[in-house]
């Protein structure tokens, strides 16, 4: 450690450590403390109470479960699609592979909000899909159910997260040597056995990274549900936002935020355990 500090090159870490401390760690610590405080007549008051956590559990556990459910669905869906895409790029597309990958990365340039609005434009009551269906005479009036439901949130977030999930999976698939696949076939494995026994286990790390990433982003998102989710898809992030906003209850908001964070970490830890233990015991 002393050696590390004495090495002047390690000073290069200083700016990032400073930024991380000021912009992330200190607010985190601050709000963690606040989560034990209370609000009296619209003023924050230092205290040490678990009431906020108890309230969170009593009133928002269901919203939390719903949020994690949607997030897990998005995580699974995104990882699956990203895996299929990365698999094709790595094994099936030949020299078009890099081009496909480049296309996926280009999709990242369209910002987050642009994608949300794009889906609004496609699925809205006067959106592209409805207009087209009306023009074709397939329907008589716009289908309202296309937008403002949990499905829209899933579609929108999956679309946005897909390129980001492709990268770690492609990275781990690239590490799979072609000759190890030939070797497996040579030893008698059928294509599905090569896939299940050789390819899949080798990209577990990438798959887990993709899942964890999409899951966490989705669990914490509150913009997408507000813009395309409608009233039926209020996620925990929306409640936290409103508590910090016009309801001005930072302690409850903080306790909800930390509860969400700890639950998310716990869920990922369990997933991680199941994912990596289940197979390697064989």
């Amino acid at each position: 450690m002393i050696e590390f500090l004495r090495d002047r090159r390690s000073w290069l870490l200083l700016p990032s450590v400073a930024a991380f401390t000021v912009l992330f760690l200190s607010p985190l610590v601050y709000f963690f403390i606040v989560s034990f405080w209370e609000v009296k007549s619209f003023r924050l008051r230092a205290a040490f109470t678990f009431d906020n956590y108890i309230d969170t559990y009593n009133e928002y556990a269901e919203v939390g479960l719903w949020t994690f459910g949607i997030a897990a669905l998005i995580g699974v869906l995104t990882s699956f699609l990203a895996f299929s895409f990365a698999y094709v790029v790595r094994f099936k597309a030949g020299r078009f592979g890099p081009l496909l990958l480049f296309g996926a990365l280009i999709a990242l340039f369209g910002g987050y909000l642009a994608k949300v609005y794009a889906w609004k434009t496609i699925l809205g009551t006067t959106g592209i899909l409805n207009t087209a269906l009306l023009a074709l005479g397939i329907i008589d009036e716009p289908i309202k159910a296309l937008i403002y439901n949990p499905g829209t949130v899933v579609v929108t977030l999956t679309h946005w997260l897909l390129p980001l999930a492709i990268l770690p999976i492609y990275g781990s698939l690239r590490g799979v040597q072609d000759i190890s696949l030939e070797a497996a076939r040579d030893l008698g494995a059928k294509p599905w056995q090569v896939f299940g026994g050789i390819i899949l286990p080798q990209c577990k790390a990438g798959l887990f990274a993709a899942f964890a990433f999409s899951f966490l982003i989705s669990a914490g998102d509150y913009v997408t549900p507000r813009l395309v989710g409608g009233v039926s898809t209020t996620m925990i992030g929306n409640y936290i936002e409103s508590l910090f906003g016009f309801r001005f209850d930072w302690p409850l908001g903080s306790s909800m935020a930390f509860s969400t964070m700890f639950c998310a970490i716990a869920i990922l830890a369990v997933t991680n355990f199941l994912f990596f233990r289940a197979r390697s015991r064989k």
């Binding site: 070797a183 497996a184 040579d186 030893l187 008698g188 494995a189 056995q193 026994g197």
Partner: peptide, 26 residues
Amino acid sequence: TNMVFQGYGLFPHMNVRQNIAYGLRI
């Protein structure tokens, strides 16, 4: 027939014994 590949093509997620047992397990 069985082949010893030039780059070996060992399975990195298995230990030596599991590598050797792979074909028999299949």
